[in-house]
């Protein structure tokens, strides 16, 4: 028996792919990674260091089309006799995982935050306000792992890479264009995030937020009203109706901490809140609080980070 892991290798091996391999290894069976696209064998072989016993690549597929990838992963699961299939809970995991569940009649646990314990897998529910424990009744299982739920564990040897043809068929979804801003850290992957809300008064005041983020190597985020009034782009909106994130550090300036905002950030390991109002609800969810004016505190914090970096 084996565990099959679908890996997105289109832009190198992101941290969440290594997490998925490490997770699969912890399930205790042989780990076979399957990918599509055109990554180099030498790159794919390094998945062995994280626990893959073998990597399969279907080079006939060069899109993220969910039907094509489902066909390939299902074919690999058949030929490898895999009873479990693991994804990262990213945009591919969210489109291919459900399809594969139907195809294999395999119960799906989306957004797992832990390995199965006593046959139950932990997930976040109610937008992070609670955790649920799910059991899968079918013999075959599909699990997608919430990014940032465990640390990749390397240290092993490279593994063999083999060509695989999964009869992908044609893509139903045609990609016309793709716009990925250069040089920005994608929010869902960021380990550090600096975020700001309506307390900043206007879009012209975001320079200091970006500067702090740059100094820390952090991504930037914002509250919903800030995205709705167009001060910041929509993809930065975090919360219940925006992106849900769980970075190691979340710094929130001028955000009140409404329950819908907290729902998207309460998985963060450490939360720092900067607010002029000592009664702001966000302080109840924070680890470190600064009662003060963001216009003074943020530049001061940036200076302190600079000093810290200079002293190594």
């Amino acid at each position: 028996m084996s565990t099959l892991v679908y890996i997105n290798s289109n832009n190198g091996l992101a941290k969440n792919t290594l997490e998925a391999i490490t997770y699969a290894k912890k399930l205790g069976e042989e780990v076979i990674a399957i990918t599509t696209g055109s990554a180099d064998d030498s790159v794919l072989a390094t998945l062995g260091q994280y626990g893959a016993n073998k990597v399969l690549i279907d080079r006939t597929v060069n899109t993220d089309d969910s039907q094509q990838i489902t066909n390939v992963v299902a074919a690999a699961a058949e030929s490898m006799g895999s009873n479990s299939v693991v994804f990262s809970h990213d945009f591919i995991g969210k489109s291919v995982g459900p399809r594969l569940s139907v195809r294999l009649k395999a119960g799906l646990v989306p957004g797992a935050t832990d390995i199965p314990r006593n046959g139950k897998i932990r997930v976040n529910v109610f937008s992070g306000k609670a955790m649920g424990f799910v059991s899968i009744k079918s013999a075959r299982k599909v699990i997608s792992l919430l990014p940032n739920s465990l640390q990749p564990e390397g240290g092993g040897e490279n593994c063999p890479v083999e060509e695989f043809n999964g009869n992908a068929g044609i893509a139903g979804v045609k990609v016309l264009d793709s716009k990925v801003p250069e040089g920005e850290i994608p929010l869902p992957e960021a380990e550090l995030v600096v975020s700001a809300g309506r307390g900043l008064k206007g879009p012209e005041n975001w320079g200091m937020v970006e500067e702090l983020a740059k100094e820390l190597g952090a991504a930037t985020a914002c509250s919903r009203p800030v995205a709705d009034i167009g001060w910041r782009p929509h993809h930065e909106h975090v919360g219940q109706t925006g992106v849900a994130i769980r970075p190691n550090l979340y710094i929130a300036a001028g955000i009140s901490g409404a329950i819908q905002h907290l729902a998207g950030v309460n998985g963060s390991k450490v939360i720092v809140v900067v607010n002029t109002d000592p009664e702001a609800p966000f302080f109840k969810a924070a680890d470190y609080g600064v009662v003060g004016d963001a216009f003074e505190v943020i530049p001061r914090l940036t200076e302190a980070v600079k000093k810290f970096k200079a002293n190594g």
């Binding site: 569940s101 009649k105 395999a106 119960g107 799906l108 646990v109 139950k120 529910v125 992070g128 306000k129 609670a130 955790m131 649920g132 424990f133 799910v134 059991s135 899968i136 009744k137 079918s138 309460n266 809140v273 302080f283 109840k284 969810a285 924070a286 680890d287 470190y288 609080g289 600064v290 009662v291």
Partner: peptide
């Protein structure tokens, strides 16, 4: 194919350090 067996509330945060 799946069922929720139980739920838990997240551990409450310790007090915020000012």
């Amino acid at each position: 194919l799946t069922s929720f067996e139980s739920y838990e509330l997240p551990p409450s945060k310790s007090a915020c350090k000012m």
